[in-house]
Simulated assay, not measured.
Amino acid sequence: MNQCTALALLPPPDRLIALAPPGHRPETGHVLCELGTDHDGHHAALLWDEGGRPGSAVWIRWQGSGPARLTQLPWCPARNPRNGTDEACELFAAHPSAHSWDITDPTHTAITHHLTHQHPHLFPQFRDGSGED
């Protein structure tokens, strides 16, 4: 499943603007929703994690062009049963889409596809046809 392509523009916080040197106002940034395309309701993007403690991940949530809000959310407890690495889901608990290991960033896939053909020596895992081409 592809990753949602919704984005939110985030103006810098007022306290950061107040600390900026004259003439060097921080720029507005953007975040891309990290959920799968099948989600409904609010979009979500991880901003930072304060050490992996329960509830220490700070996410931004938004819906449509409405205001975005910061919220601390616990990590999803799910582990990927299909591989032997005990990979944890990289989304928040009770997220409204597939787990992170089932979500593909279409931009990343397109770039990898292009680079694989331009520089095959950098992608030996795809030479035998077992990976994406």
Rank of each mutant, 00 (worst) to 15 (best):
P67K: 07
A88P: 05
E132D: 11
H108T: 05
G23T: 08
G51T: 03
G64I: 05
P96G: 12
S100N: 12
D133T: 11
T37E: 13
L122Q: 03
A45W: 00
V58N: 13
A6E: 15
E27Q: 15
S65K: 12
Q118R: 14
L73M: 10
H121E: 08
A78V: 07
R61S: 01
D133S: 15
S130N: 07
L46H: 07
N80G: 05
H43Q: 09
G129H: 04
W101L: 06
L19Y: 02
T85F: 14
H119S: 05
L46M: 10
A57Y: 03
P74E: 07
H113Y: 10
L9W: 08
D102L: 10
Q118C: 06
G52A: 12
H43D: 13
W48M: 04
P96M: 06
A93H: 11
C76V: 04
E50H: 11
C89Y: 06
I111L: 11
L35S: 02
I60D: 06
D105V: 00
V58M: 09
C4Q: 01
Q72I: 02
S56C: 11
R53Y: 14
T5Y: 02
D102K: 07
L32K: 15
G55L: 13
N83L: 03
H24G: 01
D49Y: 09
L70C: 07
T109G: 00
P11I: 03
T5R: 13
P77A: 14
R79P: 01
P96Q: 13
D40V: 15
D102I: 00
Q118N: 01
P77N: 04
S56A: 15
G131F: 01
P11R: 12
L19Q: 15
G84N: 10
P124D: 05
C4V: 11
H95K: 03
W62R: 00
E50Y: 11
A6W: 07
D86R: 13
I103T: 02
L91G: 06
P96W: 09
D40C: 15
A94K: 09
A88N: 10
L115D: 08
L32E: 04
H42S: 13
E27H: 14
R79Q: 15
G41Q: 02
L19M: 11
P22I: 09
G29Q: 14
F123K: 05
T104K: 03
S56P: 09
A8I: 14
G36I: 00
C76D: 10
Q118H: 04
E132T: 14
R69N: 10
H39L: 09
P77R: 07
A88Q: 09
D86W: 10
S130T: 13
S65N: 12
P74W: 04
Q125C: 05
T28E: 15
W75C: 02
P74H: 06
L35M: 08
A20G: 06
S65W: 04
N80A: 10
H119R: 12
E27T: 15
R79E: 15
C4D: 10
T112E: 05
R61N: 05
L10Q: 08
P74Y: 05
Q72W: 06
C89M: 09
H114D: 02
D105M: 01
I103S: 00
G55S: 10
L46P: 10
L46W: 04
H43Y: 10
V31T: 07
F92P: 01
R82S: 13
